[in-house]
């Protein structure tokens, strides 16, 4: 699929493969790759998190307000720490509500999405934060985002493949009751997934805010859909337990190229309007394909999935 997209692009717009364009694309995609890692963990345990877009908005507001002199003026180090703490805390709350209260994650995170959206708007109070300090801007320069992204991916890959943790997550996602019977800490694993999701969303926000000149309240809107599309497109089963990090990251590459292709095709404003439709369609196609594959595999034993 990536290949098809890339070839189409080559025909449509040769200028796409200029090294500078590719480098720009890479830097732009790093935040999404980081969040996709988190979302993969959440989807693997058969949950979902739709609050990350609003969370990114709140984290960006906290970061911007804390770092700038004419607002809270806490210094860049403190600001980054506060931003990451905010994200992690929201992740913990989501995880606890889902795992301890056993609530459906879509309802919890839908509510959280609204709460955070309101909170972000109240924090910024309809204004925007400009004049970000220079040391915060340094984060965006010199390939720092790419190194952070690689570190996150390497860390998650190591945890998922080298450590038994990866298998535990998949076990919880593919059959929660069985996983609980063999003594896996179901609740702890789910809380951990959501916590990492919150943490990684904050990290993604921290590396992407300095790329902008101002922080405003629209930041992060629609990110959740982009990331979920990447994950399901990358073959991570929405019914849990199946999927690889590599696949999900390929999903990011496909969606990233597709997004810039839409811009490059000179559709202008049209592209922005249709993007959400394309994402929805892709999620639907991926979900149907996943279901059909599952049905083919289990024609003898009927297996109920969520």
């Amino acid at each position: 699929m990536l290949a098809v997209t890339l070839v189409t692009v080559k025909c449509v717009n040769p200028g796409f493969y200029e090294p500078t364009n590719l480098a720009n694309l890479g830097v732009q995609l790093v935040p999404f790759a980081i969040m996709t890692v988190g979302m993969t963990l959440v989807v693997l345990v058969r949950e979902i998190d739709v609050s990350i877009g609003s969370l990114a908005g709140v984290v960006s507001a906290v970061l911007g307000l804390a770092a700038t002199q004419d607002h809270w003026n806490l210094g860049t180090g403190m600001a980054v720490a506060l931003a990451v703490a905010t994200g992690t805390l929201v992740g913990v709350v989501n995880g606890c509500l889902v795992a301890l209260m056993r609530l459906p994650s879509i309802i919890v995170t839908l509510a959280m999405m609204a709460v955070l959206k309101g909170a972000g708007q109240i924090l910024l109070d309809g204004k925007w934060v400009s004049s970000l300090p220079l040391d915060l801007r340094a984060i965006a320069a010199g390939g720092v985002p790419i190194w952070v992204g690689l570190a996150v991916i390497a860390g998650a890959y190591a945890m998922l493949t080298l450590h038994p943790w990866g298998w535990r997550l998949r076990a919880v996602g593919s059959h929660p009751e069985a996983a609980a019977k063999v003594g896996l800490p179901l609740r702890r694993l789910k809380i951990l997934s959501f916590t990492l999701m919150g943490f990684l969303t904050a990290v993604a926000t921290v590396v992407s805010v300095p790329q902008l000149s101002v922080v405003e309240s629209g930041f992060g809107s629609g990110w959740e859909l982009f990331v979920i599309t990447c994950v399901v497109l990358g073959g991570v089963s929405i019914s849990g337990g199946k999927g690889t990090l590599f696949g999900a990251l390929l999903g990011v590459a496909v969606m990233g190229t597709m997004r810039s292709v839409l811009v490059y095709l000179k559709l202008g404003d049209q592209a922005v309007y249709w993007e959400r439709a394309i994402q929805g369609g892709l999620i639907l196609v991926a979900a149907v394909a996943d279901r059909i594959i599952a049905l083919r595999k289990s024609q003898v034993t009927t297996r109920e999935t969520v």
Partner: peptide
């Protein structure tokens, strides 16, 4: 969730 995105889009 998918048809929501599709519909708005």
């Amino acid at each position: 969730l998918a048809t929501m995105a599709l519909g708005f889009g």
